[in-house]
Amino acid sequence: YSTSSRVVRFVKAKSVGLRLTGGNDVGIFVSSVQEGSLADSQGVREGDQILQVNDTSFQNLTREEAVEYLMALPPGEEVTLWIQSKQDIYRKMISSNVGDSFYIRTHFDFEKDTPSGLSFVRGDVFHVLDTMYRGRLGSWLAVRMGRDLQEQERGIIPNQSRAEQIASLESVLKATSGTNPSGARAEFWKLRGLRGAKKMLRKSREDLSALTKQGRYPPYERVVLKEASFKRPVVILGPIADIAVQKLSRELPELFEIAPSVPRDGASSKVIKLDSVRQIAEKNKHALLDITPSAVERLNYVQYYPVVVFCQPESRQGIKAMRQWLAPDSRKSSRRLYAQANKMKKNCSHLFTATISLSGGGNAWYEQIQDIIRTQQNQPVWTTADQADVAPEDSLEVLNPPSRVASGYLTCDSHANSDYDDTDGETGAFTDGEAEDAYDQPGLARSSEP
């Protein structure tokens, strides 16, 4: 607090009689004082920074949060303001047009409803620049962040409370539609945003998927850019995933290790223990995981942030030729692999951290996968903001969930990466209508099952 800081007290009338500017990045400032208001008579002036109101610090609030806080105070009650005159910073702030500044990751899909709006899909990251677009509550001014971490187009997105409404409506619609390709996702992200989710995790049972049954939908997650202090797990998706994983672990054993899958209790399906992923990371290697897309979401949730490379096939024939060349003994159906890849692309692309094309000849795909893993390992990751100030050397410990959670399981991919008994010549019933095929499909499991 500067020497000019002071405390003012007055009874809130119908309103406080102030307009605010600034935001979490620069502080909350008074931009106007209503003439004749009690705030005016108590000496609140334009350019004053509000440090605290009653018991609430204003030092890190967004402009919207500050406004909502003051609006929610009941009229007729005394308000105590800690303020300081900061004319120089106030002028500088106005001339440089800065205010709020923070990053969010979205956890619902949004179709823009105004020309200046931005559409987005879950997983998109935005830099929020103003939580009160045009001075009113309702929309945030934001810039989309590209995969290359460069800022892209600027526009408006719903504010927190509108986002909550839209997201919960979306999840209700999806839950009741019956043709929901992302029920598991929606459920998962519902849980994902819960502030208390970690507590729930601690109370957790063995199967993380049990957690996805509860919780509230989190529309926006605060994130910061942070480098991974451990070797990120790697998930390869697409029609040659099995081959890629074998080749990486065989040819580069000092860098890659396949995470072992174990039978799930009382079931023929298989799971990967989260703890074995952690153990591989502790050996300073990338764990190679054969898991479902929804298990990828769980990995993100527990902040392992896997590198997820999708191998995009050119055609069914291309897959067939490639697999005959790379794994002549495999009996996987190229028709099925091709259909699965298409569904995965349609339903899960928000989970991919990179996509490679399989149309190139030779071993280009293999080189590309290695390049991507190397590059992404060295790039920072959008990480939950809550744990941003953890010391790097502690990160693995903290990034990893507590021990009870570490015994959690990841569902093995019963669908994308496993070997099917059916062969290319077969013409079994296989429809494209089942969008959830690309996600966990307990009904369709590994080749060991009937």
Binding site: G23, R63, I94
Partner: peptide, 12 residues
């Protein structure tokens, strides 16, 4: 339009 001078902002 950013927060700017806050003169377009709602009264609270």
């Amino acid at each position: 339009s950013k927060s700017g001078d806050g003169k377009n902002s709602v009264w609270i």
